[in-house]
């Protein structure tokens, strides 16, 4: 029947269009891998853009975290239980994007005020992975460490927006006089503590450890990255060069990786953290 046929064709076309449109609008199905696959990026790595479309091309790995309760001081109340991880590389830099749900953004330092933070851990070099608990003597690990506070420019104003202007003599001093005063009034700055100064002024630090409590910043560590808190979740890029990882992550080879997350609102800091119980397999695409 021609009438029916006339009606059916446009209807079918409309249905087909609707189906295509619906497919386009539907969130992409997230492929969860049991390992971390670091894809080779087609273009430039979005090192400072945790929300870039390029991250969608990398499959996701969901890492389970548990409270550090091996060595005191321990995390008394569990914090962030899971972190979602995607990875990209370009043959020179390796970047991981960590994503976790956290309704409270904590980006400040203060007395009993702690920032949110995250870390990615790699064994240093090839061979059997050392202890997942920050390595062991003779079995070092390299750690990429991000703190939200390192993205806060003027901490004092952020903490106390209505504070009156204050004069700090050493900040207007010059030359040798300034160095002398800085030694007294800002000793951590004077000795270049990584909480104050990091290479490239990035909010990510590269450090090495051989056990709990031994984390030591690498002064020449090349790092990059950024964290963005939106819609009740953090998305944080932590990046360094493959060279800096000293063979533990090489294109076409398998390695290991582990994670840790600190919830500032829960007073997590240092050893009081949520961390991987075991190494996850790391695959860097050739």
């Amino acid at each position: 029947m021609s009438t029916t046929d006339d009606n059916t064709l446009p209807r079918r076309a409309a249905l087909a269009l609707a189906a295509v449109a619906a497919a386009a609008c539907r969130p992409k199905r997230v492929l969860h891998l049991d390992h971390v696959l670091v894809k080779r990026a087609a273009g430039a790595l979005p090192l400072k853009d945790p929300g870039a479309e390029a991250w969608a091309d990398a499959p996701e790995h969901e890492a389970t975290l548990s409270a550090q309760r091996v060595a005191p001081p321990m995390l008394q109340e569990p914090g962030i239980p899971k972190v979602r991880v995607r990875g990209l590389h370009d043959g020179t830099w390796l970047a991981l994007r960590l994503e976790w749900d956290d309704r409270s953004k904590s980006a400040l330092y203060g007395p009993s005020i702690f920032p949110d933070a995250a870390a990615v851990q790699f064994p240093r070099g090839e061979g059997a992975a050392p202890s997942v608990m920050m390595g062991h003597p003779g079995g070092p690990v390299r750690i990429l460490y991000w703190k939200a506070a390192w993205q806060t420019d003027d901490m004092l104003t952020a903490l106390h927006p209505n504070r009156p202007p204050t004069h700090y003599p050493y900040e207007v001093a010059t030359g040798e006089h300034r160095a002398t005063m800085e030694r007294e009034y800002a000793p951590a700055r004077f000795v270049h503590n990584p909480n104050v100064e990091r290479p490239n002024n990035a909010p990510v630090l590269l450090a090495e450890a051989e056990m709990f409590g031994s984390l030591t910043a690498l002064p020449d560590g090349r790092t990059d990255g950024k964290g963005v808190h939106e819609n009740g979740r953090w998305r944080v890029v932590l990046a360094t060069t493959l060279e800096m990882l000293q063979g533990s992550a090489r294109p076409g080879r398998d390695g290991s990786v582990a994670f840790a997350v600190w919830d500032g609102a829960g007073k997590n800091a240092g050893a009081r953290k949520m961390r991987s119980d075991n190494w996850a397999r790391l695959v860097v695409e050739a």
């Binding site: 330092y109 203060g110 007395p111 004092l156 000793p187 951590a188 503590n193 909480n195 800091a269 050893a271």
Partner: peptide, 30 residues
């Protein structure tokens, strides 16, 4: 040690006399 301190504030917690202070601008305890 102002180079080694990472500002976890465990010392602030542990000193019963509360004579350790955290510096929010350097992220270390003093």
């Amino acid at each position: 040690d102002q180079e080694r301190c990472r500002g976890y504030q465990e010392c602030v917690r542990g000193c019963p006399y509360k004579k350790v202070y955290f510096n929010p601008c350097t992220g270390t305890s003093e």
